[in-house]
């Protein structure tokens, strides 16, 4: 079980969090033209890196904040956790 440092609450066990996917994906802006290709990439295409990855997690049984977690997908090492509005 991972040990994740919520930037708002501190170190908590993984079972308080839910996984939210790739944190590097940016939603295209509303009311802007988006090509089919770009939209499909946004909706469906995700990298599955072996190694360092920036992920979203939500502290669902805690402060309910979405946070960013930089984690190694191979070793589960967590390098850094950030608030939703912080950039790596």
């Amino acid at each position: 079980m991972l040990h994740i440092k919520c930037p708002h609450c501190g170190l908590r066990s993984q079972n308080e969090f839910s996984y939210g996917g790739d944190a590097t994906v940016k939603r295209p802006e509303l009311n802007k033209e988006v090509s089919d290709q770009d939209w499909d990439n946004f909706v469906y295409l995700r990298k599955s890196p072996r190694g360092k990855h920036l992920e979203l997690w939500q502290h669902i049984s805690g402060c309910r904040q979405w946070i960013k977690v930089e984690r190694d997908t191979l070793t589960h090492e967590i390098f850094k956790t950030l608030k939703a509005n912080e950039e790596i």
Binding site: S18, Q65, W66, N85
Partner: peptide, 13 residues
């Protein structure tokens, strides 16, 4: 609820 929080916290803060 998580869906709304996602957009409010991450996409349209």
């Amino acid at each position: 609820l998580s869906h709304l929080e996602y957009y409010l916290q991450l996409v349209w803060p």
